[in-house]
Design a protein around this nucleic acid. Structure first.
Length: 720
DNA sequence: AGCACGCCGACT
DNA sequence: GTCGGCGTGCTC
């Protein structure tokens, strides 16, 4: 009998040892008993130091004859677990596609629907069982709900599901699969700057080199990718293309398939589990030449991987914001280095980390300075809200510009990163404003459904008729959301065809695409929306872009606010102007003298980067320092803070490391949890890593630890 | 995270 | 009485 260390999909910062008759290779899946359950685990190693004081339980079944995870993948995952200080078990499972996490091959997922009896029930039946009522309602609305969707609704629903099944109201059924057909498109002719970029990368095939492909929207980065992919494929290699979450448009995949043939697989959140597993296995075997995917695709096994591309490398969606908080772009670079292959990072507004690497010579800078022949950069102008009158959030110059575009039969886009009608409901008499009772936040007024909603926890309630504190009958709706902008627009431009795009109007991908078709068919004159409009979609007839509230990004408490605002505005500006029709971007602000506007109105990334880097150097933030953020949250008010204070005192003498103060989180209470955080920084990555390892090993000694939810975020994207 | 156990409050 | 909500403890 030999001890086997197994990684399990549980958020425990420990691994578990079992016994088996013979050694097993890392990467092999096994079935093991865990408490009263049976789980699928992944063999980590044959431990030199198996737990001594516990009787090991036996492995029940060995699922794979050959390891499911390749050696190269295991090395990447071990590094990632180590670097992000996350339990290896969870990290290993993050790399597996949903279809392979549990049973054998790519089995269809379990799904549930209401029985005829279940359909016939009145909603009042579940007067006492709230969870059952919610679940019954959700399945009724969805028709069929897969196990994954069920789990996504939150923990603790399994007993309610079983209760419904026992009552004969819900039954198991099969989930449907989706299929996305390929289209065709012609190959492109490259400009000299594109050809030079291709040549530089191609010269590095077969060894590690990192390239920062710096080019504005419309400069043709995609053609460069296509050319490189074609070359890799011609040489029998495989390639991995990472794209941001919203960036994975059907158009991109269609272009890739048209140029490269039916060897392109797509991995994203909307992918059915079976499809995901199929692509994953095909890529591992070398049959799938190109895998295009979002964040988690960085873990795809590829036997002949010869090139990695990260498109829009600055995009925040590459950083996972919960659980295993890895950065897919950073892991992509590590993987490329480790494998000895080139990696291309593309962006119009590179992250300051990547830009500094390029300036220091760690990355090769490849610039695409030209926009295509039919595309000129738009003019960007500020509107001073302190001087211009405004109606419902729309300033006079913006209204004027809208009128002229409409008269010319052109389209306009308006951006506002705030859903709903008004962000605050205020009593003019006693200054009461509608608070969320679970969060330190104001409730947003939503007109469509006549409700107040918390954007942080999702709680909804009715709009009070009068002030609950002083009884004043007329409550004011203060500030603007997309609904109010839409209302104001309809009043100002009664003849315009107006559409609004945000999570409230276009929850589904299907609805979103239907709306995009309407815009392309010029059935819409003005489109109002949140940031979800800005990425990946081209609107050729749009010549005016209005940014309603840019100021949220100017005084952000977060060190990355400047970078985010700059990239969002450039992204947005890229939507405007085409075909000899010059574009105009109007940015409404209360702070027209803010230093960020100078480079921004010229769309001058390099000037912005100089300025931002000086700032970061002065304040010792990335890329001039490396950070880790310990977050904690607890039900009781001071528990999280006390836990972090104890952790802080527990810390070994930090010579190379700067330990911050324990601070309440920006939203100190969210969904009923009190939240606090502790920032650790160091100018040396290695020093921070070594120090974290020692520190985190001692966290379980903290008496409050079992009652606190805590996590460590290495290289946090933001301090929120 | 699950899943048990165990204690409290509302309805048959 | 008993069902279901919810806090606490454990998993090699």
């Amino acid at each position: 009998m030999v001890a086997i260390r197994v990684g399990l999909p549980v958020p425990l910062r420990r691994s578990f040892d079992y016994e088996h008759e013979r050694p097993l290779a890392p990467g092999v899946r096994v079935r093991v008993p865990f408490g009263r359950r049976v789980l699928t685990g992944i063999v980590i190693e044959v431990p030199a130091d198996p737990v001594a004081d516990v009787a090991l339980r036996p492995i029940l079944e060995v699922i794979d004859a050959e390891p499911l995870l390749t050696g190269e993948q295991l090395q990447l995952l071990r590094f990632a677990a180590d670097y992000y200080h996350h339990p290896l078990g969870e990290v290993l499972f993050a790399a597996l596609p949903a279809g392979l996490k549990h049973g054998q091959g790519a089995a269809p997922p379990k799904a549930y629907r209401l029985t005829a009896d279940g359909q016939a029930q009145p909603a009042t039946r579940f007067a006492r069982a709230k969870r059952q009522a919610a679940l019954w309602q959700a399945i009724k609305v969805a028709g069929v709900m897969t196990e994954g969707e069920l789990k996504a609704r939150g923990p603790g629903l399994a007993p309610a599901l079983r209760a419904l099944q026992a009552q004969g109201l819900v039954e198991e059924c099969e989930a449907g699969n989706e299929f996305v057909p390929a289209a065709t498109a012609p190959a492109a002719v490259l400009r000299p700057d594109q050809r030079a970029a291709c040549a530089a990368v191609a010269a590095a095939f077969g060894r590690y080199a990192a390239f920062l492909l710096f080019g504005v929207t419309g400069s043709g980065k995609t053609e460069v990718y296509l050319e490189l992919l074609a070359e890799v494929l011609a040489a029998g290699g495989q390639a991995l293309v990472l794209v941001p979450e919203i960036g994975l448009t059907p158009q991109l995949v269609a272009r890739l398939s048209a140029r490269l043939g039916p060897v392109v697989g797509m991995l994203h959140s909307g992918c059915a589990a079976g499809e995901r597993a199929r692509i994953w296995s095909a890529a591992a075997a070398g049959r799938m030449a190109v895998v295009v995917g979002t964040r988690s695709a960085v873990f795809t096994p590829m036997r002949h991987l010869a090139l990695i591309i990260v498109d829009e490398e600055h995009d925040p969606s590459f950083k996972q914001q919960e659980g295993f908080r890895y950065h897919a772009r950073d892991l992509a670079v590590w993987r490329a280095k480790h494998l000895g292959v080139p990696v291309v990072l593309g962006s119009a507004t590179p992250s300051l980390e990547s830009y500094r690497h390029a300036r220091q010579g760690h990355y090769h800078l490849l610039a695409l300075p030209n926009r295509g022949p039919q595309r000129t950069m738009p003019a960007v102008r500020l509107v001073d809200l302190g001087r211009e009158s405004s109606r419902g959030g729309l300033s006079a110059p913006l209204i004027e510009a809208l009128r002229t575009r409409l008269a010319r039969g052109e389209q306009a886009l308006l951006f506002l990163n705030r859903r709903g009608y008004a962000p605050v409901l205020l009593c003019p008499e006693c200054r009461w404003h509608a608070p969320c009772d679970r969060c330190d936040a104001r409730l947003t007024v939503h007109l469509g459904r006549q409700r107040l909603r918390c954007h942080h926890c999702g709680r909804e309630q009715a709009v009070p008729a009068a002030c609950p504190r002083c009884g004043h009958p007329k409550l004011l709706r203060v500030g603007e959301g997309t609904e109010r902008i839409e209302e104001a627009l309809r009043r100002v431009l009664p003849d315009a065809r107006i559409a609004r795009v945000d999570r409230d109007t276009t929850a589904s991908r299907r609805a979103f695409e239907a709306l995009l078709r309407k815009v392309h068919g010029h059935e819409v004159d003005v489109l109002i929306g949140t940031q979800m409009l800005a990425k990946g979609h081209d609107f050729p007839h749009v010549t005016l872009v209005g940014v309603i509230h840019a100021d949220q990004g100017l005084h952000g408490s977060d060190f990355r606010a400047d970078e985010q605002l700059f990239s969002q505005i450039v992204q947005v500006a890229g939507r405007a102007g085409r075909d000899e029709k010059p574009g105009l971007v109007l940015i409404q602000t209360h702070h027209p003298t803010h230093p960020l506007w100078a480079p921004l109105t010229r769309l001058d990334y390099e000037a912005f980067a100089e300025m931002a880097l000086r700032d970061r150097r002065a304040t010792l933030f990335p890329p001039y320092a490396h950070c880790a953020l310990m977050r904690a949250e607890a039900r009781a008010p001071n528990l999280a803070t006390r836990f972090l204070e104890t952790a802080r005192q527990l810390a070994a003498d930090p010579s190379d490391v700067t330990l911050g103060c324990v601070l309440p989180a920006v939203l100190a209470r969210r969904a009923g949890y009190y939240r606090a955080q502790l920032l650790v920084t160091s100018q040396r990555r290695g020093a921070l890593q070594a120090w974290l390892k020692v520190w985190l090993a001692r966290v379980p000694e903290i008496p409050d630890a079992p009652r606190v939810r805590w996590s460590v975020d290495v290289d946090p994207y933001s301090l929120f």
